[in-house]
Amino acid sequence: MSSDTTRGGPPSGRLGTPDQMAARDAERVRSAEEAARRRRRRKVVGYVPMVLLALFFLFPLVFMFVSSLKPDAQILSDIDSPQAFLPVGDISLDNYSGVFDRVPVARFILNSVLVTTLIVGLGVIVNSMAGFALSRLEWSGRKVLLTVIIATLIVPFETIAIPMVYWVSKLPTIVMENGVPMYDFGWLNSYHVQIVPFIANAFSIFLFTQYFSTIPKSFDEAARIDGAGWFTIYRRIIVPLSGPAFATVAILTFLPAWNQYLWPLMVVQQEELRPVMVGMQYFFQINPAWGEVMAYTSLITLPVLVMFLAFQRAFVSSIASSGVKG
């Protein structure tokens, strides 16, 4: 929007008298300087609200990281001064070693990485295939199914959590009894109970459907003439063209998967299978250990932030470039 300021004087094609030319040159220099000044001013003005907003978005997290380095008493006493945001005073990693004494952090992180990777990995496959069929193939029932899938977006997980626990506890599973596969019932207390229910995702299907429908259909027809099957078209043509959609879905399914809390609380009993968010509960004993809470939250937030920062360009631009255009 601000690119109009770069427009300088008139084009230098038409020649006038030397006087006029000199005057015009001077005029041009003046107006260029003027424009540059305006641009600078506008830039400064543009930065002010952005910086203020940045402070607003950052201060709680800075407070969290800084507090994780302080003993509880100092966290409370520093609140009244700017020291709350500065790593000063009795700074140490004690809270972090306290966290490692209290919680099997490494195991929890490993569990979360495993669960999250599989939800995201299997999720993009399953949901993109569905998105492909829903956007590029013609078949009866397509519209109805798409409408139903999108309608399921209104169901918040919390409201069906209780019937879900009951339901997954009745699902069959394969058990190896002395090397012989047998059936048993009940999915509780496992990795798959944390993964399988979250693979299919209506929002992901919606995003894939949106994105795929923006790719010209002529690609498919050309491939069909060459004798390619639909699955080949999906795999060889559509998937390679849809990087941003895959990135977006991966990111958007990664976050809730990493942050799972209520569900694992209800369905996982063994400590060895618990994900990171459940570990939060360990610090709320009779008196909460605030320093350790801050250290633990920092520990489990940091991997996500680092990953986000590393991929931020792809991250932001992929969300921006994927499917929300109508």
Partner: peptide, 20 residues
């Protein structure tokens, strides 16, 4: 296309049926 479509929406549909 019909046949392929059914195959390709089947996993997601089945999972949504089961868990939603």
């Amino acid at each position: 296309g019909h046949r392929s479509a059914y195959w390709m929406v089947a996993p997601a549909t089945l999972l949504l049926l089961l868990f939603l």
